[in-house]
Design a binder for these strands. Structure first.
Ligand SMILES: [Mn+2]
Ligand SMILES: [Mn+2]
Ligand SMILES: [Mn+2]
Ligand SMILES: [Mn+2]
Lengths: 220, 220
DNA sequence: AAATAAAATTAGATGAATCTAAAAATAAAA
DNA sequence: TTTTATTTTTAGATTCATCTAATTTTATTT
């Protein structure tokens, strides 16, 4: 595992995420979109990552992450999520404030640091957004989770994660009282626009839009 | 205060340190030595820093840090030292292990992060090596400190800082039992080679070399 | 299947930050 | 005060990461 630049780490993370944990192929444009950059820059970086065998790349055919690329990506993701836990649990940040800072902290190179940080935090298994934290070997267990939007009428669930980490979305959840661990019950579904009415913690009745319902993930 | 690159921040810190808190002029070679780089690279960077008015630079005449440069340098130093405290106090690192990691962490850009970190640590005034931590405005108080080498025979002092942060030096101090806060008394001085015999905490007798005596700082 | 649209790559530039080698300025020695 | 040595700067390359514009490949429509 050679030492990668910030840019290389960011690209690997993007490829990993867009491919759904490294399964499917990813398009150049999708990466450009995700990374707020231009397709030409992506092509160039993919060529370089390919030379280092961090991705499997055939021109015009999309890209897949390689085994060693996946390993690197997962370590960066591990660091990102551990730092997010630190920021929320120890420094009292709100969950909508931590992503940007973790984007910087995830590139700090020190295996010992991350080991100690993990100890200090008590080996958390999930980050403040409900995303699983890979261990030193890149392994992790996903909680079974489905979007509220797909829960049946009268079905219940506990909020375990959010799909989007956009600060505005997270702030909105705060405002209406949805948080990780909240108990939900679907009390009405509107076919027409995908919105629904839910009961949170058996006491707060809420109307939520389709967008919200698709981005809040629950488990039974 | 514009956002600076890692390299720019590192150069500013070097100029600040080498000039003794921004007083005297600094030579190109001194900077190159300190930063493990070539004089040509330094000249080039000084030109760029000068254009941004972070340093006052006249070709062939050495360089001084400007007021705005000093402000930036002190913020980086503040971050460096706060992170060092975090690593030692919270993550249980030894004082010889933290400098390298802090060299990376000091470049994380988030005023809120550093404010929260400072709160979390209880607003420490000194880092694990006894160096003062500047506040948000770049202000700090230095403890009066003199090298053990300059203490008179039979004189006493409390160890308040170390001049060098080389891991080997710090590990050696650990090994012989010198630490911040240790009470020292000079019980013999050898004119010939500058070495001395000291009594630590009224119970451990130690012989220390001139090099050690010059790099351990005490206060009365 | 040919024409058109979309996606991806290449060509060529640019800005940091670095380097080596050569030239210029300053300092030290004879 | 010349000469020599040292220090510093410039000139010219290189690597990384990015961009715009042009070209090529692949996909979609007539
Ligand atoms: Mn995040
Ligand atoms: Mn997260
Ligand atoms: Mn340090
Ligand atoms: Mn320190």
């Amino acid at each position: 595992m050679k030492k990668l630049s910030f840019a290389e780490e960011n690209y690997l993370k993007a490829v990993y995420h867009l491919s759904g944990a490294g399964e499917s192929d990813v398009s150049t444009n999708a990466i450009a979109e995700e990374m707020q950059t231009k397709a030409a820059s992506v092509s160039d970086m993919l060529r370089r990552l390919s030379e280092k065998e961090l991705v499997i790349y055939k021109k015009y055919q999309g890209v897949k992450i390689s085994e060693s690329g996946k390993k690197s990506a997962l370590q960066v993701i591990r660091k990102h999520r551990l730092w997010e836990v630190f920021l929320v649990e120890k420094l009292k940040f709100n969950w909508d404030q931590v992503h940007e800072i973790a984007e910087q902290l995830e590139h700090i190179k020190s295996p010992l640091l991350i080991e100690r940080l993990d100890d200090f935090l008590g080996h958390p298994k999930f980050d403040p957004h409900g995303d699983p934290i890979p261990d030193e070997n890149g392994e992790f267990k996903e909680k079974p989770q489905i979007p509220l939007a797909e829960v049946d009428l009268n079905g219940t669930g506990i909020v375990v994660a959010v799909k989007d980490t956009n600060p505005l979305f997270l702030q909105h959840l705060d405002k209406i009282g949805i948080y990780l661990g909240a108990k939900t019950k679907i009390i009405d579904k509107v076919e027409f626009d995908g919105s629904m009415e839910i009961l949170v913690d058996s006491k707060n009745k809420l109307f939520i839009s389709k967008e919200i319902a698709q981005n809040v993930l629950v488990t039974n």
